[in-house]
Design a protein around this nucleic acid. Structure first.
Lengths: 243, 243
DNA sequence: CAGTGGTCTAGACCACGAA
DNA sequence: TCGTGGTCTAGACCACTGT
């Protein structure tokens, strides 16, 4: 049972794929497109919503609908808490960082396993590639475990943050819980994605050899830009090559 | 700027939370709700779409909108390719399985690293808990590697499939690529979720000790019902980095 | 200001499910 | 058949962006 807005989405998708509309170029206005396809504005907007949720189109209120550049997919590599080396080496990456100290409350006491009110350093990072943000991290560490320099304005850990890596020394164990969900209102605006979009959310708990939680991180990635990959080797001595 | 349909979604969400509408109970018809809130049908449907994407409400065409039971979150445990033991032991789980043999084509030749046209056994599994499906698996194995019994109608591997486990012998390595994306049309109908919902998609590649791909599985879970968890212990990992 | 997208309406018609 | 949700329309009004 094909619906009209899906047909239109398919047609536009194909036009974009064939290069009829170039990346970062503006689509005709919704009114024009509605005329062209002989549908109502609402139906045409549904078609665009499909493309937006696929990450093909970016809507900007008051300006128009724009074809997004076909970013290559970024890989978050599980187990090490980092983007893949190619991505991390990308010079176009910019990071916005802000650190504050807050007292531990409800969710944080659970994640970090600390008493309520403990001083916690919250570090918020938004990573951009060119214009489009591709990652949001909220890192929480007990204040006494924060490596020197993280609280500086200069922030020498910038490189680690760019890769969304664990900030402190390598932890003994990492537990990464992966969710797929719609963005919160904050995330939708921070990541510049629609409210109907999809977020890959990773809650990462790093513990040291004594079992103490040294870092809890809430990562949010636009689903259309980032995948996460996890590799497990059940035979310890075996070396596998991967493509 | 709050929109009317968000306010309505908030109101309904609160009513559900307070127990004003019980789980598995039907909401008033959309026409009634539209009257009650004094909005148009379209606006009311947008409000319901919000709740549906949060997994609070299940829409059934021709029957109504139903409050979903607050299922506990199911855990897919990475590295072993299985649901967590509690879930897997759940007696209410039912599985629908269908196996066919197909020749390898485009995507499959890549995933399985086999020549085009190789005989591949495709096994499709849908797992239900009560009424609601909570997982869809498409398992591909080279025909000569399929364990005896998988192709039987009786299907003794049913238990393994219930957990979405790897069907054959334990592989040497697993590579699991996790995506968050909107459902395909097939998945939306198979999983009984809206087209605007969110799917946690896992592409799982299992290789034996020689590096041969023994199984490729495409898993799709409703984002609101399933999380995936991956645990890494760097202590037992000899390749820990210094620096 | 004009042009754009964002929300909403009142009503039509279609598709599904249960009697 | 009837009540339900699913799609679509034509038009109104608001909010944002640039001039």
């Amino acid at each position: 049972m094909r619906s009209r807005h899906h047909d239109i989405a398919d047609d536009l998708r194909q036009q974009i794929a064939k290069g009829g509309i170039q990346p970062s170029e503006r689509l005709p206005s919704e009114a024009d497109l509605a005329d062209r396809y002989e549908v109502s504005a609402v139906t045409l907007r549904r078609a665009l919503a499909v493309l937006q949720s696929e990450g093909l189109v970016e809507k900007i209120h008051g300006k128009g609908n724009f074809v997004r550049r076909p970013h290559r997919k970024i890989l978050y590599v599980g187990g090490w808490g980092t983007l893949d080396p190619w991505t991390a080496a990308e010079p176009a990456l910019r990071v916005t960082v802000r650190s504050t100290t807050v007292p531990a409350q409800a969710q944080l006491t659970n994640l970090l396993k600390v008493p309520t009110g403990s001083p916690i350093v919250e570090t918020t990072c938004i990573s951009h590639e060119g214009e489009s943000p591709h990652g949001l991290a909220r890192i929480y560490m007990p204040r006494d475990l924060v490596p020197a320099g993280v609280l500086d304005d200069d922030f020498p850990c910038r490189e680690a943050v760019t890769r969304f890596a664990v900030l402190g020394p390598p932890p003994a164990a990492l537990r990464e819980k992966v969710r797929a969900r719609p963005p919160t209102l904050d995330e939708a605006s921070a990541l510049r994605i629609g409210h109907a979009s999809v977020v890959l959310s990773i809650t990462r708990i790093a513990t040291d050899s004594t079992g103490r939680v040294v870092e809890a991180t809430l990562l949010a990635f636009p689903g259309d830009r980032v995948d996460a990959v996890f590799t497990t080797h059940h035979v310890t001595d075996e070396r596998q090559t991967q493509g």
